[in-house]
Amino acid sequence: MVKKGTFRVKSGLAEMLKGGVIMDVTTAEQAKIAEKAGAVAVMALERVPADIRAQGGVARMADPEKVKEIQAAVSIPVMAKVRIGHFVEAQILEALEVDYIDESEVLTPADPRYHIDKWAFTVPFVCGARDLGEACRRIGEGAAMIRTKGEPGTGNVVEAVKHMRLMQEQIRAVLAAPDDELMKMAKEMGAPYEVLLLIREKGRLPVVNFAAGGIATPADAALMMQLGADGVFVGSGIFKSGDPEKRARAIVEATTHYSDPKILAEVSAGLGEAMSGIAIEEIPPHEMMQVR
């Protein structure tokens, strides 16, 4: 008997991506550059987060034509983003057979109250989170992979660091708590009790947790890995930089050898200009993507 779309099959692909870099791409050509640099997957989208931020307007799922071009160009997994709550965009991407769907705060939310019921799909989903409660709610809805939200399109790693540290701290608290305090903890975090039980059983989050949102340099990637990330997403950081090929390769090497400062020094040298970046304080509150 053959079973497709089980949670083990969905989360299993994310396990295979561990220690790797997933790169945002907007064309087949960029996808090839990413694959050649050692990306473990590419994220197909219309505009990178930095451009969405600069240009404004409603950001939607990529044109299926573009997704198909990117799928045809590479043999690594192809992911694509849908608006939060837009389950029809997700149905379309599933029909295109993308390998993973990112229900993403980078796009303009389609539903201000509800996320997609991800159990209803065969294709797996990754979702962003700022803390453990949010991560557990997404897992409760069927997400098979989690990533920090950070603050996308800023080239500023501070928010991703904040989210990763908070999640790790909260996981430690869940593991240390006596049984009779767990329900209260679930209530306070806004986390499904059953997911907290899974964390205690496994001794860690039951799915892979990547870092995302503001990673722009090899050192940023290695920092997130040392803080406990299973891998990294790089959005605008590569194709908004001076030398995308070289930077992509350097971030891949840094993610693998994240605990070896000698290698980090080597790969960080002479990469040309990084994306310019934005201080979080300069972003008006209504333009923050992570609160979506």
């Binding site: 079973k3 692909l13 599933e94 057979e97 294709v123």
Partner: peptide
Amino acid sequence: RNASGRQVHSFETV
């Protein structure tokens, strides 16, 4: 490579 197809065709069995 990828003989079993894209992720929606991934599966478990005995």
